[in-house]
């Protein structure tokens, strides 16, 4: 464990707590893409298959459980909670995320560390996570003004993988045999997808203005 990865995990946890706060406090999920949340739930379920077979550390196990439980709780809430589901922007959240599923799965069949069930699904979860934010970013562009908590949520979500990139650089210097090309390249793509969001987030922070994404 290194400081970059720890900060990355904490940033990821903060983003989830912000989303839970928004949904719990405002009983609304306006501006949140259910499709992105469903993709994240799938990312965690396919990545943490080793939850009960490989024990790495208490921290690792606890964080995996928190990520799985929170992502499922958010999806359940957006689908079934009477107040929350009514605020879901169904007509705006129209990204065809099944293509993301298919593309990630096909790529995982081609590119993986080992052709084994758990490894192919692990690679699938890495590729899927890289593109899972797309429905959310498209929804933000369509819904124009972005409420504060939603903006913070997306910001921390993007920042966590950027910190992981520093973690991979650090681990490479510590141990040149440490190569995680799949996670690293996907992490770069994932962070790059946030580039324009980070730009508009920075502008809104500098001008102390509301976060506006161009349509």
């Amino acid at each position: 464990m290194n400081i970059f990865r720890f900060l990355g995990d904490m940033t990821h946890l903060i983003s989830i707590l912000i989303l839970l706060l928004k949904i719990y406090a405002t009983k609304s999920c306006s501006g949140i893409s259910l499709k992105t949340q469903e993709l994240y739930a799938l990312v965690f379920l396919t990545r943490y298959l080793d939850l009960f077979t490989d024990f790495i550390s208490v921290y690792n196990t606890v964080m995996k459980l928190v990520f799985i439980a929170s992502s499922l709780a958010i999806v359940w809430c957006m689908r079934n909670h009477p107040l929350v589901r009514r605020s879901y922007d169904k007509q705006l959240d129209t990204f065809r995320h099944y293509f993301l599923l298919l593309a990630s799965f096909l790529l995982a069949l081609l590119l993986h560390e080992k052709f084994a069930f758990q490894e192919v699904l692990w690679a699938f979860s890495i590729y899927l996570e890289a593109v899972a934010i797309l429905p959310q970013l498209v929804l933000l562009q369509r819904s124009g003004n972005v409420d504060n908590l939603t903006g913070q949520y997306v910001f921390f979500l993007g920042a966590y993988r950027a910190l992981y990139i520093f973690n991979w650089i650090y681990r490479y210097f510590i141990d040149p045999h440490f190569t995680r090309w799949i996670a690293c390249v996907s992490g770069l793509v994932q962070t790059a997808l946030y580039a324009d969001f980070f730009y508009y987030y920075f502008i809104s922070w500098k001008n102390n203005a509301k976060l506006q994404l161009p349509a």
């Binding site: 550390s57 995996k64 990520f67 995680r180 996670a183």
Partner: peptide
Amino acid sequence: EQLQGGHDEL
């Protein structure tokens, strides 16, 4: 921490 496949990260 290194596991087979090195999946020690979240």
